[in-house]
Computed example of a mutant assay.
Amino acid sequence: MTNEKGNSFGILRYYAAFCVMYLHFTGYMMSLVPDHVRGIGVLRSIVNFYQPTVIMFAISGFLISASLERGGMDAKTFVKKRFSRLYPDLWLSMAVYIAALYLIIRDKFDSSILKWCFTQGIGIAGTPSCLKDFATGSINGPMWYFTVLIQLYILVFLFKLITKNSRSSVLYGITCAVLAVCNIICSMSVSKIGDTGAKLLERFFLPYAVWFFMGVFIQTCKLHEIKNIKTISLITVIIHAVIRISGTYDIGYYTGVITGICTCILTIAAAHLLTCTKIKTDLSYGMYLYHWLFLNLIIHYQLYDKFHWMVCLIIFTLSTIVFAYIFRVKRK
């Protein structure tokens, strides 16, 4: 049996946050610094071996399910907890972004900033029209995850409410299978729905729900507590590695369905099998919020032409961590 209070989710959140940061960094540097594409590609392959956004969805699904189990199905309490966890830091980061960008490119600012403040302030990802030609073309590219996560929080609450907090492994197994099929359908449809449709799909919960509900499934049915979890984890590691290393085609939206499910299983298993380490200060959310600011600044000032890409990586990493630490809402 494992203890849900003694786990390594804190370490895994940091791991996922760093991997997301470096995926975004390498994604731009591979085209901006073509002479070093091999070295940048190696780093990219490492941080993308276990897809980090899938890790984040699986962790969120597991922990939100555990929170509902502890706190009960009270809608007011649920909303209050989610609001206090997500929105104060989001609003603070928005203020920091506006202040920093105003100091650098104030001549670009117009009324579209106000519209952006409202839409992103309620959790809808987007970029002010006045900044679409600045650096990456996005004021905070990863914010689609926030938009999707809000939808999934609402969905899981309604799912547990309608199913009366059922712990049926059959129910959850069927649900995850259906969501996996939906992911595949989304993958097959994205090229046929145009740019606007693709953008809307990117911010819709359906393609990602399978990863989130895998975490919910494992927590609700206590699959992480079964006796042969180590054997299952080893088999899952092998399946995942064979598919990734061999380049076997694995259909799916955002990432392959099979490797995505394997990543979810391994994430939750690792959280309970690894030596428990309590991290007092969790900066992972702040790292996710602020890293895009420094990616934009590196591109805007063309630092990749002035310094080696690894120096830019260090600047990118340290700046993000410092801002995540300074500009955070402290909780008791």
Rank of each mutant, 00 (worst) to 15 (best):
T2K: 15
T2N: 15
T2Q: 15
N3G: 13
K5A: 15
F9P: 10
G10N: 09
Y14K: 04
V20Q: 02
F25K: 03
G27V: 02
G27Y: 05
M30K: 10
M30C: 07
S31Y: 14
V33Q: 05
R38L: 04
I40R: 07
S45P: 03
S45K: 12
I46Q: 10
V47A: 07
P52T: 06
P52A: 09
M56D: 13
F57H: 10
I59D: 06
S60P: 04
S60Q: 05
L63N: 04
A66H: 05
L68R: 14
R70V: 08
D74N: 10
K76V: 12
K81E: 08
K81H: 12
S84L: 11
Y87G: 00
P88N: 07
D89G: 14
L90W: 00
S93A: 02
S93E: 02
V96S: 02
V96M: 00
V96L: 01
Y97R: 11
A99Q: 02
I104F: 03
I104V: 05
F109N: 07
L114I: 13
W116K: 09
W116P: 14
W116C: 09
F118R: 08
T119E: 08
G121R: 01
A125G: 05
G126D: 10
G126C: 05
P128N: 04
S129N: 04
T136D: 06
T136G: 02
G137Y: 13
M143V: 11
M143S: 07
Y145E: 06
T147K: 12
I154R: 04
L155E: 05
F157A: 03
K160P: 00
K160A: 02
I162P: 05
L171P: 12
L171H: 10
C176M: 08
L179R: 06
L179T: 04
C182W: 12
N183F: 10
M188W: 15
M188V: 11
M188C: 07
T196C: 09
A198Q: 06
K199V: 12
K199D: 13
L201W: 09
F205P: 06
F213P: 02
F213R: 01
V216S: 12
L223V: 12
H224W: 13
I226A: 13
I226D: 12
K227G: 12
N228W: 14
K230M: 10
V237G: 12
A241S: 01
V242P: 00
I245F: 02
I245K: 10
Y249H: 12
Y254T: 08
T255N: 15
T255W: 08
G256T: 06
I258N: 04
I258S: 00
T263N: 00
A269C: 10
A269R: 15
H272G: 03
K278A: 03
I279T: 07
D282T: 00
D282L: 04
G286F: 03
M287I: 08
L289D: 00
H291P: 14
W292M: 09
L293R: 06
N296T: 03
N296Q: 08
N296C: 01
I298L: 14
I299M: 01
L303C: 10
K306V: 04
K306D: 05
F307N: 07
M310S: 14
V311F: 14
L313F: 14
R328M: 10
R331Q: 10
